[in-house]
Amino acid sequence: MARGIARAASFGGRAAAAGWFSYRRITVAVCIANLVAALLVLRSLTSFAPAPKRVEVVQYTEEQIRRVEESIRIRREAEPVELVQAVKKLRKVFAREEKRRKELPLELKLRVSYELVGRLNGLGDNGTAIQQREALESWRVETLKDAKSASTRNSSNLGLSSEEARLLKRALEFNWHALLEDIGLWISPEVPHTEHDDKPENEPEEEIIAGPPLHPQCNTELHADYGGAAVRWGLTHHKESAADCCQACLDQARNAKPGELKCNIWVYCPSEFGCYSPDKYEHKHQECWLKQADQPKLNFKDKYSESYRDSHPRAPVVVPWMSGVTSA
């Protein structure tokens, strides 16, 4: 009897515990816990949110307001109203022309291009730009006359309908150059050129000397060949420019040791084809001869004489060398 009562009490306790931990109560508890966690997260986020900025209202004085209004008035008066209106009108004109150009059907453009190319081919390969322009202009005048008369006879020499003749007539009258661009034809414009010969008579032509400018001490003479004792053999002494050759002469004279010849004459070959000399050597471009003479004398100047060239057939007309007697 006692054992039965104890067993019944034990079963009732387990039943009570099972009722307390039911699925409904567990679900409610989990939902409440999630809600509390969400509220805590939301609070933490809002606590770090930046405070709204204060909008400061600037108070302007009457003098500042007057200056602002004055600047607005000056800016409006300085606005190029006429220029803006002219630009607007031009934009409308260009828009209309572009629209008219696009109205021309592709098939009609191809037909026009074939006609123009055939007209240009008739000139041959030796046709000048002027002849090409004249040929195209002649075709335009003939076609325009045909398009104008097509409306009266409802036919055209090109086989155009009245609508095609109307579109082509408009293109030839107002958009001729644009039509040429569309079909890929461009003829260089004729640039008038007037030759002005205002150079004084007997004025020598100015020659350009390659390289840096020469020092006044060089006393440069074009087409001149001075003689003298060789201080530096030019066959093995080349310089990039005449200025470098002259500077080499000045440096040699400045640094010469006692008893040595001091350079006071420099002779340079500026020609890329070499320079003629009556000796047996071949004188090449950029040869720089350093010479010395107490009384410098010219071997040749400007041109070789006819008698000299008769006896020296290899001699050119003009003396190719350039040289100078330094004033250091």
Rank of each mutant, 00 (worst) to 15 (best):
H285D: 09
N264T: 00
D251P: 05
H285R: 09
D251N: 12
K257S: 15
P270D: 02
C269M: 07
H285F: 12
K257Q: 14
C263K: 02
W289N: 09
L261C: 05
A293V: 05
D294F: 02
C249W: 04
A253M: 06
Y268N: 02
P258W: 03
A248W: 04
N264G: 06
K257M: 15
V267H: 00
D279Q: 08
V267L: 10
F273H: 13
H285P: 03
S305P: 09
I265Q: 01
P258A: 14
R254I: 00
K303L: 03
D251A: 14
H285L: 05
L261I: 05
C269A: 13
G259S: 10
H285I: 06
D302C: 01
P296K: 04
D279R: 09
E272A: 14
P258R: 08
N255D: 14
S305W: 11
A293Y: 03
D279N: 15
W266D: 02
S277R: 03
Y268L: 01
A248P: 03
Q247I: 02
K303W: 06
A253H: 07
F273Q: 12
N299K: 09
D279P: 06
F273L: 02
H285T: 10
Q252G: 07
K257E: 09
H285E: 13
P258E: 15
G274T: 06
D302V: 11
C263Y: 04
F273M: 02
K280G: 03
G259M: 12
D251S: 10
L290V: 11
